[in-house]
Design a protein around this nucleic acid. Structure first.
Lengths: 199, 199
DNA sequence: CAAATAGTGTCTTTCAGACATTATGCT
DNA sequence: AGCATAATGTCTGAAAGACACTATTTG
């Protein structure tokens, strides 16, 4: 019994939804981070453990995607894997080891074994669905942000342009205005917003 | 490692979405049909096996819901369970043993252990989502049916009345007219339809 | 002023909800 | 005729797509 995780993030330099991959220890190539489940361990704890040791990321709320149970999936034997998806802002990945990890756009995941390409595709779809009608539910942005910043993040997650005015009208009733203005780049100052109910 | 299945059906006498429960062998009360996974066995095969022995149902296409991994879930020890959902017409349950099984409306599942009530709620939601915009995807009806029959099935699955004319307009473009009319009860004869792409 | 970004107004199309009307068989 | 069911027509309001316009900053 194993867990595998598609850890997604946004690279601000290249605004595409990307997935963390780790160098395989048992052979050449890359794979999703994963681990075998310890006896009595919860799935979320195993995900946390695998990502803590491989990418130094903590405080996760992984979501299950599905179980992959094809007996031929893993050449080492019969391994059931519970696929998970998790989204973190890229600064949470700063402490990862660059030689043993890489970030790859989800649209071009490379050649992966274990059916990991399918997990990535499903993970990307899950995140896109989550972002379709909620303002940045996975906190890629901080507590406060402008509608322009939110717009760019949602476009990057969706992987396609989203109409600006329609996006504003959809998101504005879901946000809490702070009343503060901010000037980030040359242009009219933008209003800062917060998510509505935020821990 | 185990599988549990919410096997849903419609009782024509009482048009509510109902779930099959089996008498527990290790204690009093009722539970969802389930079994432990055999080594090397696929999840879908374990589901099929458990339902074949307990309800004499074959030819299933179970869908995964999620894994339940709470270590305190099963008092007998550490058991991960993959919950599944499956829908069959009630005639496929004719050969079940009446004393050891029962059909219960999903809205009132009774007192169940192992978190089975939550599985049932999630299963019902999954089926309702599937039925929201497709004509009877799980073949509760046969190959041919009238829009009135389809309407009654969808209402029973949804657990609430669905507007008749809106339902017709939504479903008609998804159906293939046969050109044949049929008179089932006193009233104007209805046209028979088929699903569009049907194996 | 020009460029860049933020914010608003408005038109059209589409679609769901709701109600009404017509069609055709049965007793 | 009267009832039951099937099928269609039409109005309205909400939401999405699309385009245009105004507002406010920097250089």
């Amino acid at each position: 019994m194993a867990v595998d995780t598609a850890l997604l993030t946004l690279d601000p330099a290249d605004p595409e939804l990307s997935v963390l991959q780790v160098r395989r220890t048992d052979g050449p190539g890359w794979a999703l981070p994963g681990t075998f489940l310890h006896p009595g361990e919860r799935l979320a704890d195993a995900v946390e453990r695998s990502l803590r040791t491989k990418a130094d990321v903590r405080g996760l709320r992984p979501r299950q995607l599905r179980v992959y149970d094809d007996p031929a999936r893993d050449s080492r034997g019969w391994v059931l894997s519970v696929a998970h998806v998790e989204v973190v802002p890229i600064r949470r990945l700063d402490s990862r080891r660059p030689r043993d990890t890489r970030l790859v756009p989800v649209a071009r995941p490379g050649r992966l074994g274990f059916g990991h390409a399918e997990i990535i595709a499903r993970a990307a779809q899950e995140v896109r669905d989550r972002y379709a009608d909620r303002p940045d539910p996975d906190h890629l942005l901080g507590r406060q942000f402008t509608l322009g910043e939110l717009h760019r993040v949602h476009q990057a997650v969706a992987g396609r342009p989203l109409q600006r005015d329609g996006f504003r009208r959809l998101m504005k009733p879901l946000l809490c205005p702070t009343g503060h203005l901010v000037t980030r780049t040359g242009g009219r100052p933008a209003e800062l917003f917060r998510r509505v109910s935020n821990p």
